[in-house]
Design a protein around this nucleic acid. Structure first.
Lengths: 238, 238
DNA sequence: CAAATAGTGTCTTTAAGACATTATCTT
DNA sequence: AAGATAATGTCTTAAAGACACTATTTG
């Protein structure tokens, strides 16, 4: 494993891709990039995930590459970021044996700076998730990766506080519940939701209310953005 | 992302490592390799995970590399195999920027052919897990990887049928429960365990019993080795 | 029969589901 | 007061925990 022969092994191409989710207008969306057609990749669909090569001079580790890519596209610097896995094969990219290390990020669209359109050679866009994918064909194996990310997200939302990372700084209980419902694609029971969320150490009520033409709603913030909370059961037994 | 410049980017070294678990003598064990000291890696601990370079000629994809490595060391060809994630950084391997794509495998020791000792330049050994690691110092970041694997395994065992993959072809309910208990490091309540396991589609009783100086125990086999079963709750709410 | 482990039954506890009821604001 | 949504309460249900009890073998 450590001979000169080994180090001379041909090395696969190494990428990092980031599946960036947000909830906007009651829809789960993913940030996709539309690239200009290229000589090297003539037959690839133009839409794809945010990503690129690891820059071994700039990037200390894989997560740094993911954060760099996220910052470039959204200007968000401290998202919820979790590794999804890696995909590597001889055929996934026509340029040769390649591996992509995939992260998924949850952000509040309020924190993302307006996405640049045109100008660049790239066009970034929030695209609505429909079922287990999007309406566009995606380059490489990005559709499979996106599907895995959606599945992972939906699974974890059943028993964690992940949707809290999709929220702005302060929000009401009903707004948080709505985020859960958007991701899960089904409605949840109000009082059970409330009891469960409040029984954990996730939220802190702040000294403010959201007003409207009805009873004011308590506003909350996340107690500790660094730690997701795990519940002991899923929301709905099958 | 597709220019000649990009393809010329320096490429990290690409490895695959496999954390292979089994339960033997009521202990959770991991397969480790002891390598001969090397000129290239003079200061590394000699014990490490099973792994090696991706061979882009032999291996179709990352999972193929993992299976090849597993086969080389255990002769097992159809384990439970799940990707754990990838670790990549400038410093994790002194030979340069590197990425390892890590899988974890669960096997029954009955299926593994006797491990070769000496003979080769390597010495493979089942090492008992104590707490969140092993008693040996491990090379590179393998201790961190092992710890992540143990955590993932213990977490999933709370709500899946994974320990079934640690069993031989047929086994009793008590033996399966013992596997759960060994992995989790705590005892479970017999009747709740039974009810939960039998309420899923996991097991099939066979027409045979395990005899002893007591009431014979029904033997079971796994109905469908391809699909792990997910429970709706963890075993013990905190 | 004693010993041992397999397997079942009962009662309690925990948290979710369904759904009704009360609370508090605006217009 | 009407309308709206927030927040709470009550009763039911699902499944786990604790633990006692019965079943079936060997020696």
């Amino acid at each position: 494993m450590t001979t000169q022969q080994d180090l001379a092994f041909p090395r696969p191409l190494t990428f990092v891709d980031v599946v960036i989710f947000c909830v906007q207008e009651s829809q789960l969306k993913v940030l996709l990039i539309k690239r200009k057609p290229s000589d090297k990749l003539p037959n690839q669909p133009q839409w794809g995930l945010v990503g690129g090569f690891v820059d071994i001079d700039k990037d200390e580790n894989l997560e740094a590459t993911a954060l760099r890519k996220l910052k470039e596209k959204t200007n968000v610097t401290s998202p919820y970021l979790e590794q999804l896995g890696s995909w590597g094969s001889r055929t996934r990219d026509p340029r040769g044996w390649s591996v992509t290390n995939v992260y998924f990020a949850l952000i509040s669209p309020e924190f993302a700076s307006p996405l640049q359109h045109g100008g660049n050679a790239e066009d970034a866009q929030w695209v609505t998730i429909e079922g287990s994918g999007v309406k566009y064909a995606l380059a490489f194996d990005h559709h499979e990766i996106l599907e895995t990310a959606i599945t992972r997200l939906r699974n974890k939302v059943e028993y964690t506080s992940l949707p809290a990372y999709l929220m702005p700084n302060t929000f009401t209980m009903a707004e948080l519940q709505k985020s859960y419902e958007v991701v899960l694609g089904r409605s949840l029971e109000k009082s059970a939701f409330r009891t469960r969320v409040l029984s954990t150490d996730l939220l802190e009520p702040i000294d403010d209310f959201k007003l409207g033409s009805n009873r004011p709603a308590q506003l909350y913030k996340i107690k500790n953005r660094a730690n997701a909370v795990f519940f002991q059961r899923t929301f709905k037994p099958v």
